[in-house]
Deep mutational scan, measured.
Amino acid sequence: NQASVVANTLIPINTALTLVMMRSEVVTPVGIPAEDIPRLVSMTVNRAVPLGTTLMPDMVKGYA
C-alpha cells in the first residue's frame, strides 16, 4: 500500500506548507503520494485542512 500525505496539524487556508505540517501514512482513500512531500513544501492550501486529513491534489494550489 502506498503512503499518502496527511496533515500533522490543523493547516489554515492559504498557509504555505512546511515539512512539520505533513506526515506520511497509509490511508483510504489514497491522497497525494508521500514521495511528493518535498515538492509540496512552500505550496499553499486552498482550504483549511484539519489534523489527520489526507491531502488531496485539489487542496494544494499548483499541485494538480
Rank of each mutant, 00 (worst) to 15 (best):
P29R: 05
T9C: 04
M56G: 04
E35A: 13
V45T: 09
G52L: 03
I37L: 14
T54P: 07
G31S: 02
A16H: 15
R47V: 12
L51S: 10
A7H: 01
V27A: 07
L55R: 01
E25L: 09
T9A: 13
M43E: 05
V60A: 00
G52V: 02
L51P: 09
P57F: 07
D36M: 14
Q2A: 07
T44E: 14
T18E: 09
V60Q: 01
R39D: 07
T28N: 14
R47Y: 13
Y63W: 13
Y63L: 06
L17D: 00
N8A: 14
T9N: 09
V20S: 12
M43A: 09
D58G: 12
R47A: 13
I13K: 11
T15C: 04
V49Y: 02
A34V: 08
L40F: 01
A48R: 14
N1Y: 12
I13Q: 10
V26G: 05
P38Q: 11
A34H: 06
D36P: 00
D36A: 13
V5S: 03
T54L: 05
I11L: 05
V60S: 00
V41L: 12
I11R: 01
L40I: 13
D58V: 11
N14K: 06
G52H: 09
V30T: 11
V60Y: 01
N8F: 04
L10W: 11
D36Y: 12
I13N: 14
G62D: 09
L55I: 15
A64F: 10
I32E: 01
G31L: 01
T44C: 05
T53F: 12
T9R: 15
K61C: 04
T18H: 06
P50F: 09
G31I: 02
P50E: 15
E25C: 05
N46H: 06
E25Y: 07
S42I: 03
V26R: 08
K61W: 15
R39W: 06
T18Y: 03
V30F: 11
P12T: 12
S4T: 04
T9Y: 10
N14M: 15
P38M: 11
A48P: 07
I11G: 00
V41R: 06
E25P: 00
V60E: 00
V45E: 01
A16L: 14
P33C: 04
P29D: 06
S4K: 01
V20R: 15
V45R: 00
T15A: 13
V6W: 02
T18L: 07
M43S: 04
P12Y: 06
A7M: 04
V5R: 00
N8C: 06
V60K: 00
T53D: 14
E35C: 06
R23S: 08
E25W: 06
M21V: 05
G31H: 02
V45Y: 00
I11W: 01
L10A: 12
P50M: 10
L19Q: 15
G62C: 05
V45A: 07
P57T: 06
N14F: 13
A7P: 01
V30W: 10
A34S: 12
P50Y: 08
